[in-house]
């Protein structure tokens, strides 16, 4: 099997896990702090207080809501890693030329996962040779240009809002993808692992030699290894992100957004901040948005577009694939683009 050499020094899945990237070590340390904090601050060592209840319930609820999708993302990324022909994505991208990024956005529904699973899938697509800028476009578009999410949004808020959300997501994903083309991948991308070889050996040397096609039994083993390793890593990031989101919700910072959401000018940024903190699933957030009856359509749309692309838990999961400065820039650019785009889309809605 000839390995793709899309970006930087390639590492095998096994190699990636064995080397314990600095990001993974950081999140392990954060998770240990979380355990220590939970033991010290929660009952029975400390009496149950209101914030502890809010933290506990929010933490468990967010994990239960996200876990099936993280697992689905890991399964899908395993299937891509094992079954998708190596050269297919690179060849397809070359053929599309300048339309590759918008093409990726339009084809995002082919891998319809919401944001918790899309990070795994995007990493798997990069390992299979999808150019990184297109992978970013997919990552941002997948939760929004998504039939399940569109159906849920249409049910809760009407077909117009669903279409506006889809268009908004597609425009921002395309714009960010195109802008990312201008930056050398080595500057913003963490090393991406290539797929594990059929004989399970480590490709940390990036030797790119050819192998005979693996048998189905070997493919099955690869699939399980890939899914297991991906889930073990993603769940760690999810854990820390969810803990942060629950801690902020349990603190005073999580209150007081309701009044500001009603303002014409303050509404969109307020609900974007709410979406960032709540870290809700894209398949469900439309129903939450529908309960903000005082908020303007622009604020609701900002909540729906921004949340699935940037929230607390996602930022931590993005750091698994991207360098920190790029994650920060991504959040800022998406926030500004959402604020700029929402008035136009709202005018169309009216």
């Amino acid at each position: 099997m000839l390995l793709p050499r899309a970006v930087g020094p390639a590492l095998s899945v096994a190699g990636l896990a064995r080397r314990r990237t600095p990001t993974r070590r950081l999140h392990t340390a954060l998770a240990i702090l979380l355990v220590a904090a939970a033991i010290v601050a929660l009952p029975p060592l400390a009496p149950a207080a209101d914030w502890q209840r809010t933290f506990g319930v929010t933490f468990v609820a967010l994990l239960l809501a996200a876990l099936p999708y993280v697992l689905l993302g890991s399964l899908l990324s395993g299937v891509i890693a094992v079954l998708l022909p190596d050269a297919f994505l690179a060849r397809w991208s070359r053929r599309l030329g300048p339309f590759a990024v918008p093409g990726t956005v339009l084809l995002a529904p082919l891998f319809p996962v919401c944001e918790c699973g899309s990070v795994s899938v995007a990493r798997a697509l990069m390992r299979k040779g999808l150019p990184p800028a297109q992978a970013v476009a997919y990552l941002l578009a997948a939760p929004l240009v998504n039939p399940t999410v569109a159906l849920a949004t249409a049910t809760a808020l009407g077909a117009d809002m669903a279409v506006a959300r889809c268009i908004g997501g597609a425009v921002i994903a395309t714009g960010v993808g195109l802008a990312t083309l201008l930056i050398a991948p080595a500057r913003w991308l963490r090393p991406v692992g290539a797929d594990a070889c059929a004989d399970d050996h480590d490709h940390g040397d990036d030797h790119g030699h050819a192998h005979a096609a693996p048998s189905w039994r070997q493919r099955g083993r690869q699939l399980i290894d890939h899914v297991a390793d991906d889930f073990a890593e993603m769940s760690l990031f999810l854990l820390v992100g969810v803990a942060l989101a629950a801690a902020i919700k349990a603190s005073a910072l999580g209150d007081g957004f309701a009044d500001a959401s009603a303002g014409e000018l303050s509404g969109p940024p307020t609900l974007m901040a709410t979406a960032f903190i709540m870290s809700l699933c894209a398949e469900a957030d439309a129903f939450v948005a529908a309960s903000f009856t005082a908020a303007s359509p622009a604020a609701i749309l900002a909540f729906l577009i921004f949340g699935p692309m940037v929230d607390l838990k996602l930022l931590l999961m993005y750091r698994l694939a991207f360098r920190s400065w790029y994650v920060a820039a991504l959040a800022l650019v998406i926030a500004l683009a959402t604020l700029a785009l929402v008035p136009l889309l709202t005018r169309w809605l009216a």
Binding site: I32, V35, A38, L42, P43, R53, G56, V57, F59, V60
Partner: peptide
């Protein structure tokens, strides 16, 4: 592994 045990800890002890 300790980190992966956190959800159970929070579930059983706190939530």
């Amino acid at each position: 592994l300790l980190a992966h045990a956190t959800p159970i800890l929070v579930l059983v002890v706190a939530a």
